[in-house]
């Protein structure tokens, strides 16, 4: 059991092609799923705790408990997308294999997150700024995500036409995980904000991205309101 687990975890990291081949052939699905689930839970739990360590105290526990939920919920919403898109791209597989592939790719991502966690924890302690913490956490997640993409790409079948399928599935996965994470925020917690388990629902991550983009360019909410007001006046619209 433990030897089997260790063997699968090693294969997940060292030879994603063999894991992808096993899934395509429907071999060892149970052991791959078991090892992947364990890796996913441990990796995201530890990484979540590290992200929460920027604020410390209760936020470490909250973030550690929430990040596995983000992964699991994203997985649950992305597997049907992969299954439907595979059929449309003429490479259908049973649902169990689509689920195993997505789970294994997420597990590989989680294992890399686990590897990056100590370095991120140190960086968050050295660089105390909130924005630096946001950038470093996002970079770590992006880097780990690349490892998962590699496995997913190999599992999608022949190279011909694979790029479009991968692009579609990845877009859906990224949008879903961003919205799920946005729904379960806060993660790092600004110094001025209180620590809570989950904030009330509000907008989408896309609005926050736009707001952050404007803020980074030095355009703040009040400036944008004035610009909108000037535009309305120019068009002769009522306030």
């Amino acid at each position: 059991m433990s030897a089997d687990l260790s063997h699968t975890l090693t294969a997940l990291l060292r030879s994603p092609a063999s894991i992808a081949a096993s899934i395509t052939e429907g071999r060892d699905l149970r052991s791959i799923a078991r090892a992947s689930l364990l890796a996913l839970l441990v990796g995201t739990l530890v990484f979540g705790g590290v992200v929460g360590s920027h604020r410390g105290s209760l936020q470490m526990l909250y973030a550690a408990l929430k990040l596995p939920w983000v992964s699991m919920l994203t997985l649950a919403l992305s597997v049907p997308v992969l299954h439907g898109a595979r059929a449309a791209f003429e490479r259908p597989e049973p649902f169990a294999q689509s689920a195993a592939l997505m789970l294994a790719a997420s597990a590989r991502t989680a294992l890399v997150l686990l590897a990056l966690a100590p370095a991120l924890a140190l960086a968050l302690q050295v660089l105390r700024g909130y924005h630096a913490a946001v950038v470093l956490s996002a970079l770590s997640y992006g880097l780990a995500g690349l490892a998962g993409v590699g496995l997913l790409r190999r599992g999608l079948g022949p190279a011909e036409g694979r790029l479009a399928l991968l692009g579609f599935v990845l877009s859906a996965h990224l949008l879903t995980s961003a919205q799920v994470a946005w729904g379960l925020r806060p993660w790092l917690v600004r110094p001025s904000a209180d620590v809570v388990l989950v904030r009330p629902p509000e907008g989408t991550f896309a609005e926050e991205l736009a707001r952050a983009g404007f803020s980074a360019a030095g355009i703040y909410d009040s400036t944008r309101s004035k610009a909108r007001e000037a535009e309305r006046r120019a068009h002769g619209e009522p306030r």
């Binding site: 919403l77 049907p80 997308v81 439907g84 898109a85 859906a172 879903t176 989408t204």
Partner: peptide, 29 residues
Amino acid sequence: TTGMVLAGLVPLTVFFELSAGGPDGQRFA
């Protein structure tokens, strides 16, 4: 083919519809 792709997107669409608050969130969804 169109139906299969859309069927795969049903859970994700319900999630976005229920989690995107406000008019801007609805526009994004």
